[in-house]
Design a protein around this nucleic acid. Structure first.
Lengths: 194, 194
DNA sequence: GTCTATACGTCGATAGAC
DNA sequence: GTCTATCGACGTATAGAC
């Protein structure tokens, strides 16, 4: 039903957004990248804002699809390391997300609501899963809610660091795995002491 | 020596940048906020880019100034909690930083170099301090370098979460303190087990 | 493809201080 | 009479809308 063109435009928009952010993106640039004219783009998406929101949805879909392949929850540290690796294998997705979310922190950007919702649902999700498995406190002694916040912050922060300096450190998935195993308090990982 | 005007313009620029990001900021808006015209601003700062860079320097100066008041290193978890609290007491600084850094992830933004340098120097700094105190491994078993990365990522991530949803959770400084005490492995903090 | 809006940066001008 | 602070007007580029 959705024409192939629509998909192509979304792909093109993802690239341009990743490269220039929302404010910096012109419909012309998206159109050129997709091989049609501005009017062609506006035929499928009524406005730049709607286009952005659909790209964000696309990203969500891709992420969920990827996670669905794993048996999430058996190996938390591994799951998160994998999620980080996935982002790093798809730099456009990662950059788009980072830039657009930050822009949304700003005044009245269209993605503001999206960002707030995402922030809350991800935290609730994490807290729910952790509580289901560990109860009120993680084995490390951390409060479950605190742990969920820390996990989320850590992942977001790692993405930012990686994007800020892609020539630097690139063992982030491994870093995440080790840190998580300490935070959770499982000792399923080589947390070699002294 | 620098005229008072200059300072006023920097202050105004900080506000506007925090509110609209770099791309969204017009010299006109800064000028209006500072009570003069675009040309007046351009008299003190040759370009929008230079203005941005000076605002980033200003932020650095403020941060250093604030940290100089503490006896940094005696209580790591406390230091970081304090740093987070400081940011939250100065929302303009925090938002400006977050938005501008994220924009810099993008193509050829002026702050790109600044961000990469900051990323490296902060990590090196942290790693150096941690190594000086703990050696190759933290008491928690984490590798020192890994710990430094995790600390930095955690702080950056927490800022982002806070900015994304300021109506949500607001115990971030406390969260940071608790998480750090687990990551480092000091048990100087109520990490109540079971 | 044209219209309109906005924004950057330059040029020349004015007015006061030294 | 030159230096500093500021302004108005202009040229150009880009983006969104129809």
């Amino acid at each position: 039903m959705v024409s192939a063109r629509r998909g192509e435009i979304l792909e093109a928009a993802l690239e341009v957004l990743a490269d220039r952010g929302f404010k910096g993106t012109s419909i012309d640039a998206v159109a050129e990248c997709a091989g049609l004219t501005r009017q062609g783009v506006l035929h499928y998406f009524p406005s730049k804002t709607r286009l952005l929101l659909e790209v964000l949805d696309l990203r969500n879909a891709l992420n969920r699809e990827h996670l669905a392949d794993r048996n999430v929850g058996e190996d938390w540290a591994g799951d998160f390391a994998e999620a980080v690796a996935f982002e790093q294998d798809h730099p456009s997705l990662a950059r788009m997300q980072c830039v657009v979310l930050a822009e949304a922190v700003t005044g009245q950007e269209p993605a503001r609501g999206y960002v707030r919702d995402r922030c809350r649902t991800v935290q609730d999700h994490l807290a729910g899963h952790l509580a289901a498995r560990y109860g009120d406190r993680l084995p490390s002694g951390l409060d479950t809610r605190t742990g969920a916040i820390a996990l989320f912050a850590l992942i977001e922060g790692v993405h930012q660091l990686w994007l800020a300096d892609q020539d630097g450190e690139d063992h982030y998935p491994e870093v995440v795995r080790e840190v998580l195993s300490v935070l959770l308090g499982d000792s399923a990982v080589p947390a070699v002491k002294g």
